[in-house]
Design a protein around this nucleic acid. Structure first.
Lengths: 327, 327
DNA sequence: CCACCCAAAGTTACCGGTAACAGTTCGCTT
DNA sequence: AAGCGAACTGTTACCGGTAACTTTGGGTGG
């Protein structure tokens, strides 16, 4: 009670109604926009809202409507990947559509944690968006709450993963490379496989090994590089892996790009400042995120017509980590 | 209606009450834990909850209690800084305390956006945590809703920023350096100033310039490095800046560490794989985040006794970017 | 000029919890 | 066995909205 006195309670529609001299339902109708108000009432309501600084309680609204405007973004380790940027893009899109994005992360190394995290999702969320698109997550969600899931993948309509990898392949061929190793992301990630598939499709002419890194990190790339067998170029599933690979090559006494060329993917903000600056593919994460959220939205509000989003266009950025094959 | 049929409504306390043959209030009491139940009722309630798979509606609870368990984390660009990791630490702590963390980001380059973002904060949130601790944010929040703010700073109790900078200074002195430039983070960030102050306090013996970078990014570090006047070592406010500085030095034909030593701060996961691997200070972001959230919690629930958190201990990690001063 | 219709506005119930107060029940005293 | 307080449990109201139904009032047609 002390508390209630100290914190002046926020005005409600009843307050607005009293000031505007209408019923609370009229205010509600004004807010929702269904069924028009007579100009006179409308104006009074507007003025009352202004005067009181009224703002609707999302909590009450969610309760009354039996649905919330919260979407959960599920992901494992947030720090390793371009995930953050994706999440950020999703968040922007969600907010623009009036949703709140609740990011939940779980420790992927603990097999139970995912299940626990899933059960701890509030049942009243509008949807769940799996950002980290692993098999593990997919299975767990399929099992526990198949109704809600929408996943992010790069086979999403509008993605041009294959074109991007084609550009990489062409670039390397132009430089005279012919033994090209691909270091993929972790095997159980869809997007890792998608990128690998795209590369294989694009690089039919380029012989070479295909490795899977244990993660998306520089450390994983460094580890994977142990298995490298004298390639002329290495294409990596993301920039961090490329960084790890570059480091491993340097420790073997191989110079990038003089001895081996290295290509990344994602164009993280730091890539341009690596030594050497990394040739990579720029992704528009914000747009990717918007696409991902759009898919959720299409499912949540199927009847609302929407402008299609522009297609994603990832494109190659050539920097210092690629050079002509040594004679 | 179609919808309501399709989606079986989640069980409520009334359902539980019916099955357990008690009143809904008894169920509520069981859930809240105040006033004990008779073993017989308690057991029936427990069984009913089990059977129905009941889970409380946070929405209804928030409405009834007149407060939500949502805390907003406010930050500018999420991608540039160690911010993500901090946010992640805060999120973990929040979830552990039963709170949901809603991250809101704003575009710091647009002066109006912050104000707009602030007004778009739902009035029923429990608290606001300013992650990006800039003057701009501080002022805006002070003006608009001074009641809620708790900020993250590194002068937080338990931080050992000064000790960490002392370790850096000692390390450089041991290596024989005497012209040490400090490249600080952006001037309007508290933590940038805190780190600078800590460095100055620690490095009384080391003459050298103090520069401010325009951001926390590699690009900002690269830009700031234009102003470098032949130091023997450069200490940077974070690893990204250090990366940019290293790059700029390389382009001037200076080798790190042979000609100039470079030190970073934060130990981002990639730093160990830079060329050369970066000497830096490891921060326990999770713990930093936990401290930050604890401060919010202490304000929200002042009466709950809590174990103090362990003190943060950032410590120096020496890698390849520092070496003895060239003879 | 009145019956009738439709748009606008009002009333009441409900969403799923919590709070405050009003019963019950039980164990123990006398 | 009645009396009594403490410990449980039940009843009712309320949080701030929305939904469904009812009422009101002005315009139109016969």
């Amino acid at each position: 009670m002390v508390r209630k006195d100290r914190v002046p309670r926020a005005p409600t529609i009843y307050d607005v109604a009293r000031v505007a001299e209408v019923s609370h339902q009229t205010v509600s109708r004004y807010l929702s926009g269904v069924s028009p108000l007579r100009p006179a009432s409308r104006e009074r309501v507007e003025r009352a809202i202004q005067e009181l600084g009224y703002r609707p309680s999302l909590t009450a609204r969610a309760l009354a409507r039996g649905e919330s405007r919260t979407v959960v973004a599920l992901t494992g380790e947030l720090l390793e990947v371009g995930t953050v940027q994706l999440v950020e893009g999703v968040r922007r899109a969600a907010r623009a559509a009036g949703y709140v994005l609740d990011v939940m992360t779980y420790d992927a190394s603990d097999p139970d944690e995912l299940a626990r995290t899933l059960t701890s999702i509030r049942p009243d969320v509008a949807g769940v968006l799996a950002i980290a698109d692993t098999d593990q997550l997919r299975e767990a969600v399929d099992r526990q709450s198949p109704d809600l899931l929408v996943t992010v993948t790069e086979d999403a309509p509008g993605a041009n993963t294959v074109e991007a990898h084609l550009a990489i392949a062409r670039h390397l061929i132009d430089l005279g490379h012919d033994r090209v190793t691909y270091v993929a992301g972790p095997r159980d990630w869809r997007s890792a496989r998608t990128r690998l598939r795209a590369f294989e499709q694009a690089a039919t002419g380029l012989a070479g090994d295909r490795l899977f890194a244990a993660g998306w990190s520089a450390a994983a790339g460094y580890e994977a590089a142990r298995l490298l067998t004298d390639p002329t170029a290495v294409v990596c599933a993301n920039d961090q892996i490329a960084l790890g690979v570059t480091r491993a090559l340097a420790e073997r006494g191989l110079d990038v790009p003089a001895d081996v060329s290295v290509v990344g993917y994602d164009d993280m903000p730091e890539s341009a400042y690596f030594s050497p600056p990394l040739t990579t593919v720029r992704q528009d994460f914000a747009l990717h995120g918007a696409h991902a959220f759009r898919r959720v939205l299409d499912r949540l509000e199927p009847d609302v017509p929407r402008e299609p989003l522009p297609a994603v266009e990832d494109h190659l950025i050539v920097r210092g980590s690629t050079a002509a094959r040594r004679a």
